[in-house]
Each structure stands twice: as C-alpha cells, then as structure tokens.
C-alpha cells in the first residue's frame, strides 16, 4: 500500500474511532465503568443504518435513529446495573449479547451491504462540492467536521450543571448523595449518552463501508479504552489540552500504530490479537503510574 493510502486509512479509522472513544471516555474514564455494551451498540448503529438506508431513508435519519437506539441500549445496561444490582462488567456483557441477536434481527442477516445507495459520504451534495473522484478527501473533511461538532457539544455538556454531576459521580458518588441526588440515575444518564454516541459512530462507520457486518463490534471497547488511555497520557504531558482533544489524538496515534504493524507484514487476521496485546501493554505501562481516583466510603 502506498503512503497516501495508509495515511487516509489512519485518518478515517482514527476519526471514526475518536467518536467511539468520546463515548467510552464517558463510561471508562468519567464513570469508571468498563462498559462492554459498546461492542453491541457500535454494530447496532451499523445494522440500523444498513437497514434504513436500503429502505430509502436519508443518512441524517440513520444517524439520528442510531443515536436514539444507542441511548436506549445504554439505559437498559444502566437499569441492569443500577436497579437490578448486577456488576458493571456483567451488565454490559448481558446487553452486548442481547444486542448481537437484536442486530441480526434488525439486519435480517450477518452482513448487509448497501453499495449502490447514497451514503453520508457519497451523495449528490458532496459530489458537487468535492467532485466525483475525491472520495478520501470528502470522507476525511466530513468526518473532521462531525468529530469537531461532537467534541464541542460534549465539552459544552460537561461544563453544564448536569455535566458536572456526571463528572462527580465517578469521582465521588458519596458527594452526589449529599447533593440529594440519586446517583443511580446519573450513572444511567452517562451510560445512555455514551452508547448513543457509540451507536452514532457505528452508523458513520457503516456509511463509510457501505455495509453492516455482525462481527464489526468485537473489540470496540478494547480499542476505545486504548485510545482513551493514550489520550490521558498525552493530557498529563501537555496540561492545557482538553480531555476530548486528547482522546482524538490518542485515537489517531493508536490507529497509526496498528497501520504500521500491518504495513510491516502483520496480516489483517492478526488484528484482534494485536489489539489485545496493545491494550495489555498500555495497561501494564499505566500500572506504574498512580491513576486510582475513586473514593470509597
């Protein structure tokens, strides 16, 4: 593969996964909740997008509906954890497994292409702006705009009163109770927003690939957690950048490492193995720095 091709790949995948990582930043970093639901809500966005696109819905609707369905998935994980008192990891796994079947139901089969349909990146509007043969540039520009909008919205939300509650519940949930607020509801809200964002990213991924594939969600959490941790390390080095900016940089860096690994001879089928080993290395390196933050009563 040529250098330009590799760079385009890094940017596209890196940008899409920065959106996924915004969601996982909320659960993993803010809520201290390793939410496996994302392995199901990412393909949820894909399956609903493929199905709706084939039915003739325009890309905007597929994004919106993916977002809403992701929110519902997050709420359900939250209810399983908060109200039914199932552990955090198991709650996510239960929802992930349930979503596997739901995604098959939505799409009707394990993979569903929509190559000849208009997509978010391939439509009359963008062809008239960027020209017919500039697919990579179109995709990167559109993705950049979306990533920046999502980042700004998330930053804004985190600086509202409600956003501060979310930030506090992962830091010190006793304080939330002292504020006379049900901490469970705040956790459910965090999971809802996170999975909404992840399903939204899944929809974008489907638009880029023009297909749904049931196994596309496997490893979503592992990749996104890696991105978030790399991002947080960057943030510790350069104090003045926002966590969301750090997450974008982390996602791009991570993708670059994966692409380099592939370009020096590792095969695509080794990808999940590389992903797993990379996260393990990141976690071990991270162990040496004290990052514990949760206050227990």
């Amino acid at each position: 593969m040529d250098f330009f091709g590799i760079l385009v790949g890094i940017l596209i995948e890196g940008l899409i996964y920065s959106i996924v990582s915004f969601g996982v930043y909320i659960t993993y970093k803010i809520l201290d909740f390793p939410d496996m639901t994302v392995d199901g809500s990412f393909p949820l966005g894909m399956s609903i997008t493929a199905t709706l696109t084939l039915m003739g819905f325009s890309p905007i609707y597929t994004l919106l509906i993916s977002f809403i369905l992701g929110i519902i998935a997050g709420i359900l994980t939250g209810i399983i954890h908060v109200k039914l008192k199932v552990g955090d990891l198991l709650s996510g796994i239960i929802m992930m497994i349930a979503l596997y079947s739901i995604n098959l139901r939505i799409a009707g089969r394990p993979n569903l292409p929509f190559f000849n349909k208009d997509t978010l990146f391939r439509n009359d509007l963008f062809i008239s702006i960027f020209g017919p043969n500039n697919r990579p540039i179109t995709t990167i520009v559109v993705l950049l705009v979306i990533v920046i909008i999502v980042k700004i919205l998330l930053d804004l939300f985190l600086s509202t009163k409600r956003g501060y509650l979310l930030r506090t519940v992962g830091d010190n949930e006793t304080l939330i109770t002292q504020l006379a607020i049900d901490k469970g509801n705040i956790k459910i809200m965090g999971l809802a927003i996170a999975n909404g964002i992840v399903a939204f990213a899944g929809s974008i991924y489907a638009h880029d690939r023009s297909f749904f594939e049931i196994s596309a969600g496997t490893g979503t959490l592992v990749i996104a957690v890696s991105n978030v941790i790399i991002g947080m390390q960057i943030m510790n080095k350069f104090h003045n950048i926002k966590p969301t900016t750090a997450v974008i940089i982390g996602s791009l860096l991570y993708r670059a490492v994966i692409s380099i690994a592939i370009s020096i001879g590792l095969e695509a089928r080794d990808l999940k193995l590389i992903t797993a080993i990379l996260l393990l290395i990141i976690l071990i390196l991270n162990k040496f720095k004290s990052t514990s933050k949760v206050v227990k009563r």
């Binding site: 501060y164 930030r167 506090t168 830091d171 010190n172 006793t174 304080l175 939330i176 109770t177 002292q178 504020l179 006379a180 607020i181 049900d182 901490k183 933050k293 206050v295 009563r297």
Partner: peptide, 23 residues
C-alpha cells in the same frame, strides 16, 4: 438516603469524601 439529604448536611472523617477530587 438521597432524599433525606435534602435538609441534612454531612461531613465524614475522610476529608476526600466531602469533595470531588478532580474539580
């Protein structure tokens, strides 16, 4: 508990419990 806290304030032995550490 959280509804009772509407008109109760509480301070614990552990100073970390009363504030949000990252804010």
């Amino acid at each position: 508990e959280f509804t009772r806290m509407k008109n109760i304030g509480r301070v614990y032995q552990n100073p970390a419990l009363g504030t949000s550490p990252h804010l």
